[in-house]
């Protein structure tokens, strides 16, 4: 197979199996056309069209656990990919100034559409080797503290912040606990609330619990179509509540972790469309969608004063929560007694 075709078939999900045949046919036609000097480009084009139609069809019926697979795909564009694609003049900045430099959390300064911005985000690897180096995108306390340090730079010099969220969660380990994982996340939440600059958070893959929220309290929270955001992984929820990790599908459905569900719950502000088949099929296109979503949302935020930005963020999270109204219950209580 050509390298391009090989890469594409390697990236296929098990639920995309029907596409395999079509890719093979394209490959055959290519070989035939090469050996016989026949022009089969029309036929190939038709097959490619069929692939796209079929893929569109498959993705229109995608289940939530299939979305989880897309969100976790090893080839899914990472934070550094997106920064490279939508920003220029990026300078990565390292370290929390206290303990070390966490490679699971990246960040720095950059130009976005002619404007200085600070970018931060969790960084996953694209291979096992890279993932070990990046700790699978699971940051330690020093990662969260680095992110906060960079956000403070943004604040001091009045630049907007963009955070990219893609993590299974904050790392659960001895060192992480020893150095105060809970405190690091908690402090970020409190400090993000009081940031005086525009802040946009984008969930690009896995939005894993407190580890995701730890850099995710934007004035606007955007989410890629095939990403997830949840309080615990479907597998974790299944093993704790259903006492059976194989019931992840059921747990994922119950928790409402898809972009569509979260938009309906008011937890996110906007869903960013992905290219057919997921962002990894066309990272440039995905990045372009992200770029336009940022431009659109940043415009409004840039009009707000520091005080208004804090108030805007406060009101946004203040509204989160669904419970029975006081009056209903007090009435029920009164009528009983």
């Amino acid at each position: 197979m050509t390298q391009k075709e090989e890469q594409k078939t390697k990236n296929l999900f098990n639920f995309e199996k029907p596409l395999m045949e079509l890719y093979k046919k394209i490959e055959e036609l290519r070989k035939v056309s090469e050996s016989s000097q026949m022009d089969l480009s029309e036929e190939i084009k038709m097959l490619e069209k069929r692939i796209e139609t079929l893929r569109r069809d498959i993705f229109s019926k995608i289940s939530i656990m299939q979305v989880v697979q897309v969100a976790r795909h090893i080839s899914r564009p990472t934070t550094l990919d997106y920064i490279g694609l939508i920003c220029s003049d990026f300078v990565e900045l390292h370290g929390d100034r206290n303990f070390g430099d966490d490679k699971a959390m990246v960040g720095g300064i950059a130009q976005f559409e002619g404007r200085s911005v600070v970018v931060v985000g969790q960084q996953k690897g694209k291979s096992t080797k890279e993932n070990i180096e990046r700790n699978f995108g699971m940051a330690h306390p020093e990662g969260y503290r680095k992110a906060l340090r960079l956000m403070r730079i943004a604040e001091r010099f009045n630049k907007p912040i963009i955070s990219f969220i893609d993590t299974p969660g904050a790392y659960p380990g001895i060192g992480a606990e020893e150095r105060g994982q809970a405190e690091a996340v908690a402090k970020n939440l409190r400090e993000m609330a009081n940031l005086t600059v525009p802040f946009i958070s984008i969930i690009t893959g896995e939005g894993g619990s407190g580890g995701a929220l730890g850099i995710g309290m934007g004035n606007k929270v955007l989410m890629l179509e095939y990403s997830i955001y949840s309080v615990i992984s479907p597998e974790g929820c299944a093993s704790i509540l259903f006492r059976d990790s194989s019931r992840a599908q059921q747990a994922a459905e119950a928790m409402k972790i898809s972009a569509k569900d979260l938009l309906a719950l008011g937890v996110i502000d906007e869903i960013i469309k992905e290219p057919v088949g997921g962002a990894h099929n066309d990272p440039e296109k995905a990045a372009n969608f992200i770029k336009h979503a940022i431009i659109k949302n940043l415009d409004g935020l840039l009009k707000l004063s520091p005080r208004e930005l804090i108030a805007d963020r406060y009101n946004k999270y203040r509204k989160m929560g669904i419970f029975a109204e006081v009056a209903e219950l007090a009435d029920a209580h009164d009528s009983k007694s």
């Binding site: 407190g210 309080v231 119950a254």
Partner: peptide, 9 residues
């Protein structure tokens, strides 16, 4: 679900 996470925020 996610609403419990939002209580942290």
């Amino acid at each position: 679900g996610i609403m419990s996470l939002m209580q942290m925020a």
